[in-house]
């Protein structure tokens, strides 16, 4: 994979909630943890020393349990929350030093946001909601409706243009939310637990919709979730937050196979590894000695499919293909080893 441009870079970001964050900051930089800071100084450590590079055209997923600071972090990127210390740059523009006016223009044109509770304007129709960002930029009604119509179709909401949000189901409302974000034609899209309020089937549909749209649009998406399955499905780059600091970040498959913290191991031990892990993450490089293969599997296939192909035979070896070229091989034994979470191996 070629290295993509860094779109947004976050450096040494701290956020402390309380009456005197400056003083509390000095304790936090000296390494005081969240519970002590709360106990002894009555300040909440929201974010601690966050360093993240968000790459252009990728979906960066920030995952963590409630209270881990993930919603706080995403709100720093468009400065809905002001940081206590640190810097955030987008395309080398320091977001922290924008004036109110510049910040407003940036929010109107460069960043859009999708919310957990949709946050649509209840007194406006779907069309008027979707066209909001264009309206704020002062575009004429006819022109903006034309543009909005395009995105309403993209999110499969044709025929509901004149409905009000309260007449739509949750899934449809969030489609409106996504269309509203897309209509602004911003390069960066912030999605704050965008699918968490939806029921499971709708949620899966919406994830698929997002991935479909992303294939064409190649936007820089920052997605917040507390659901690891969702995170692994969507993420190009995964960041795991706990108590306001980053526990681990990197390629999702890599985190899954090499969790560096007991917290993450507990997290990943619950999921269906066969469905999430891909052949490319566990295959071995081409070895001239291994020549007999039971069949071929694709580089990006998940392990579930390989198991089905092997019919449960652990002695088989498959050739791994990428774009019709062999790139390695996969032993079923290695596959089954990869399926066992490390936390269980340690228990033995």
């Amino acid at each position: 994979m070629q290295e993509k441009n860094v779109k947004i870079s976050i450096r040494n970001l701290y956020k402390i909630f309380g009456d005197d964050p400056e003083t509390a900051l000095s304790f936090a930089t000296q390494g005081m943890e969240k519970p002590e800071l709360l106990e002894e100084h009555n300040h909440v450590l929201g974010l601690k020393d966050i360093n993240v590079d968000i790459h252009e055209g990728e979906i960066t997923v920030i995952m963590g349990l409630s209270g881990s600071g993930k919603s706080t972090l995403i709100r720093h990127i468009n400065r809905l929350i002001e940081p206590t210390a640190g810097e955030i740059k987008m395309d080398d523009i320091d977001i922290m030093h924008l004036s109110d006016e510049e910040l407003r223009v940036m929010r109107q044109t460069k960043m859009s946001m999708v919310f957990q509770k949709f946050a649509l304007l209840p007194h406006r129709t779907v069309m008027e909601n979707v066209a909001l960002s264009l309206e704020l930029r002062g575009m004429k009604a006819k022109q903006r409706e034309q543009e909005a119509q395009k995105w309403i179709e993209k999110v499969e909401l044709e025929g509901y243009e004149d409905s009000y949000p309260n007449q739509c189901s949750g899934g449809m409302q969030q489609r409106v939310g996504i269309a509203r974000a897309l209509t602004s034609n911003s390069e960066v899209m912030l999605m704050d637990e965008a699918f968490s309020a939806l029921d499971p089937i709708v949620r899966t549909n919406m994830q698929d919709l997002l991935l479909r749209l992303q294939q064409d649009l190649k936007k820089t998406i920052i997605f917040i979730t507390h659901d690891l399955d969702e995170a692994l499905k969507l993420a190009d780059h995964l960041i795991i937050l706990k108590d306001g600091y980053i526990v681990q970040q990197g390629e999702p498959q890599h985190i899954l196979l090499n969790p560096n913290d007991i917290y993450i191991e507990e997290f990943v031990s619950d999921i269906n590894r066969a469905r999430v892990l891909r052949v490319r993450s566990i295959m071995s490089e081409i070895d001239p000695k291994v020549t007999t293969f039971a069949g071929q599997v694709d580089y990006n296939d998940n392990l579930e499919n390989v198991i089905a192909l092997s019919k449960g035979d652990t002695t088989k070896v498959f050739q791994v293909m990428q774009d019709d070229r062999p790139v390695g091989y996969l032993k079923m034994k290695d596959l089954f080893k990869a399926l066992v979470p490390r936390i269980i191996i340690d228990d033995d």
């Binding site: 809905l80 223009v105 929010r107 044109t109 304007l121």
Partner: peptide, 29 residues
Amino acid sequence: VDKDVVEAANAYGMTSRQKLFKVEIPLAL
């Protein structure tokens, strides 16, 4: 007025005047 909606208004770069007339007054009506 729903805090989430006001936050959305901010996130899309409304001025406080736009917020008042396009969001707060209609929702408080």
